[in-house]
Design a protein around this nucleic acid. Structure first.
Length: 587
RNA sequence: GCUGGAAUAGCGCAGUCGGUAGCGCAACUGAUUCGUAAUCAGUAGGUCGAGGGUUCAAGUCCCUUUUCCAGCUCCA
């Protein structure tokens, strides 16, 4: 495809290249805007870029635009593609550009223009009667866009600010041909089947009930999974020299005033009264950890002192943001607070990054890293923030880790390194985070005795690996599509007797396997073997053992794998050997 | 919180113009005792998310509200 760049030059790029694909989708967004303008001339256009899997365009409609309008808009878009307009690029000075936009009554474009420097040459693309102030690039002709589809309509604040007017955003996608579009839509359908909310219900892992919005119920099988993650977590943290504590869920107002949460986090805290005194349910575990640190005088010899806590936290998240296990109002954070001297910061951060990488690799997760800097609503001095931010940056540079900077997204007490994981449809969720905190030790007047015999202030790191166990489980469920590896499966083996006559034999096998520590169920219904297999497959149990007359005589079982089918018959001992080899628990 | 959509049996869904709430699966009972993804028959299951209104009559129309879904904003 020929791509028309902002400087007027022309480059060649395929749809498989980012440049080509983005230009292609961006041009589709313009075609959408042109169609919308033709059908509803009073509409105001805001902006319309390409995004990861398609494009969107934000409009200000003076009526209620809904998905019912898609058909007529798509029909008009088809016409525009067929009319095969050339996309013509040109520039003009800002005054002239504003004049043009005033003529076309486009207030959003004028607002954007007014913020550009007065002498700026403004880039425009024109296709037929439609012109758009735009930095491009675009494909050369509208006829290139052979396959497209409008997908959804949603509200979006003008310029992403909730104080501004909410516009109507139309999402869509486009491809060079119908086959690729079909393929994409099928992939979306497939991804929806992995949705952890759907699988959580189907597999009996957890429940979200109206009685507790954002407060998940863990069902027996989901709790097995959660506890297995916790067991694994305890094991690796013991290895890394962490000491686990547990602090109260509720603490008094004075503590939260000291920590700064009462002032900076109030809108998310649940509070109550005890004997007339304000208490808050913890939205974070750090103040509790701080109090534990202060229960004894500390020495530099104990540093770095790693104190971990599986903290049950509650936050009043806005109703519209709740999302299955990914975004809840109550979750368990695998928190840890590490106290150290300044010169220990780099090594400590590197150690945590390695630990997080180890854990994510264990599950086969891909992740990306972000460095979040000082937000508006922050506490602490400029020097402290600079030192904290530099420490994180240096550690990342040292590790040669790729990261993007997320300006102003830090915690109110310090900057952070965030680890983001992807869900089944490509949305990313922050899980691990490492936060450097100079503020809390000051506010709590934490101290240690140094080599020189004097009192000093420790540096504190907050860090989580899973993030919250709930969110991590959500990612985990979608990543494996419910087909967990053997060691994580709530039911590892299901024994399927051919008929009622063999239930006794099935029970013998079950108790044998249970002694080996396997989680094992029997399907004792009076059903045919095919139906029992079907049920076990739908439950995504990794191993099915078929027990009938043949097996009783030979003292064996017939083994069937979730993904591999019939493996033939074998003795219990050789089965156990194979299962141990695969790993029935995380060692 | 905001914009738009949705809510009917445990789950997945149908329900036309406002006129006696239905299907499939699951559950339960009985029969069947079977060899690698669905055996047959029967039974039971509902304040149609909640509250109010219009109407002779509301699952259906109107208002309020709760929860969920998509996105925005926010965030582990």
């Amino acid at each position: 495809m020929k791509i028309k760049m902002k400087d007027g030059s022309i480059r060649e790029a395929g749809f498989d290249e980012e440049l080509g694909r983005n230009a292609f989708r961006h041009t589709t967004a313009h075609i959408l805007a042109q169609a919308v303008k033709r059908l509803y001339p009073t509409v105001k256009c805001a902006i319309g870029p390409s995004v990861a899997d398609g494009f969107y365009y934000d409009f200000d409609f003076d009526f209620r635009f809904s998905e019912e309008n898609f058909a007529e808009v798509e029909a008009e878009m088809k016409k525009i593609v067929k009319e095969n307009f050339q996309l013509r690029h040109y520039t003009q000075d800002r005054g002239r550009a504003i004049q043009d936009m005033e003529e076309r009554e486009e207030p959003y474009k004028i607002e954007l223009l007014n913020e550009l420097p007065e002498d700026e040459e403004i880039s425009f693309y024109r296709q037929g009667e439609y012109l758009e102030m735009c930095a491009g690039p675009h494909v050369a002709y509208t006829s290139a866009v052979r396959a497209f589809k409008l997908l959804s309509v949603a509200g979006a604040y003008w310029r992403g600010d909730e104080k501004n007017k909410m516009l109507t955003r139309i999402y869509g996608t486009s491809f060079p041909n119908e086959e690729l579009l079909e393929e994409y839509l099928n992939r979306l359908e497939e991804a929806k089947k992995r949705d952890h909310r759907k699988l959580g219900k189907e597999l009996g892992l957890f429940a979200l009930l109206e009685e507790g919005p954002g407060f998940p119920f863990f069902l027996p099988k989901g709790l097995i999974l959660k506890n297995l993650l916790i067991d694994y977590w305890r094991k690796i943290h013991a290895r890394e020299g962490y000491m686990e504590i547990s602090t109260p869920v509720m603490l008094n107002r004075q503590l939260w005033e000291t920590s700064g949460h009462w002032e900076h986090y109030m809108d998310k805290m649940y509070t109550t009264l005890i004997d007339g005194e304000d208490f808050a349910i913890k939205p974070m575990s750090c103040p509790g950890g701080m109090l534990v640190y202060k229960t004894e005088p500390r020495s530099y010899r104990e540093f770095p002192m790693r104190i971990s806590e599986l903290g049950l936290i509650h936050r009043n998240e806005k109703s519209g943001t709740l999302h299955g296990l990914m975004r809840v109002r109550c979750c368990t954070q695998d928190d840890a607070h590490i106290f150290m001297r300044t010169e220990q910061i780099q090594d400590e951060i590197k150690g945590i990054v390695r630990l997080i990488d180890e854990v994510y690799s264990t599950f086969g997760f891909k992740y990306h890293v972000e460095l979040s800097t000082r937000p508006e609503n922050s506490i602490g001095s400029d020097e402290d923030w600079k030192m904290a931010t530099d420490s994180l940056t240096n550690a990342l540079e040292d590790l040669k880790l790729q990261y993007i900077i997320n300006e102003g997204d830090g915690a109110f007490y310090g900057p952070k390194i965030d680890f983001h994981l992807e869900d089944s449809i490509g949305r990313t969720w922050q899980c691990g985070t490492i936060q450097l905190d100079f503020q809390l030790p000051q506010r709590f007047e934490a101290e240690y005795i140094g080599e020189d015999g004097n009192k000093h202030r420790p540096i504190m790191i907050h860090r989580v690996v899973f993030g919250s166990i709930e969110r991590f489980m959500g990612i985990l469920i979608e990543h494996f599509a419910g087909k967990f590896p053997l060691w994580l499966s709530p039911v590892q083996v299901k024994i399927l007797p051919i008929s009622d006559k063999f239930i006794g034999y099935a029970k013998e096998i079950q108790s044998h396997l249970q002694k080996e520590g396997l989680r094992c169920e029997i399907d004792g219904r009076s059903e045919k073997i095919g139906f029992k297999i079907r049920t076990a497959q739908l439950e995504k149990v990794p191993y099915m053992l078929i027990a009938g007359e043949k097996e009783v005589k030979a003292g064996s079982v017939s083994v069937r794998r979730r993904d591999g089918g019939d493996l033939g018959s074998m003795t219990i001992d050789s089965l156990l050997e194979a299962l141990h080899k695969e790993g029935i628990r995380k060692q």
